Simulated assay, not measured.
Amino acid sequence: MAATDGPPVIKLGVDDAIAGLVLSTEAHWNQTEEDWRVFLREGVVFGVRNGPLLVATAALLPYSGNNAWISMVLVTTSHRRRGLATLLVDACLETARKNGLTCWLDATPAGANVYGPLGFTPTLQLRRLKLVRSGHASGPAPSVATLDALRARDRRAAGFDRTALLSAFAQRAGSRIVAAHGCIALVRDGRTARHIGPLFADNAAEALALVDAIARSETGPLLIDTVASQSAFLEGLTASGWTIERPFQRMRFGPATAAGEELPFAVAGPEFG
Rank of each mutant, 00 (worst) to 15 (best):
T121I: 14
R246L: 10
Q230V: 01
R49P: 01
D148A: 15
S167R: 13
T86D: 10
P109I: 07
N203Q: 11
V55T: 13
V267I: 15
R133G: 02
M1C: 02
P247E: 13
R97C: 03
L61M: 06
R250K: 06
I214M: 06
H195N: 10
T4S: 14
R37N: 05
T77N: 12
A239M: 10
G47D: 03
R127S: 12
G20C: 15
W242H: 08
T32M: 09
V75Q: 08
K98C: 07
I244S: 12
V9C: 12
E26V: 04
V144S: 15
L124D: 06
A207Y: 07
T108S: 15
T4H: 14
P198H: 02
F200Q: 07
T243A: 13
L61N: 03
A268D: 03
V38K: 00
D189A: 13
A110T: 12
F248N: 08
L124T: 06
A96K: 02
V211H: 07
N30H: 07
A59L: 07
G273V: 07
P122A: 14
R216Q: 13
C183P: 00
G273R: 10
E218P: 06
D35N: 05
L165P: 00
A56F: 03
R194I: 01
N113C: 12
D148H: 11
L186R: 04
D106V: 05
A173S: 13
R172N: 08
K11C: 14
A137W: 00
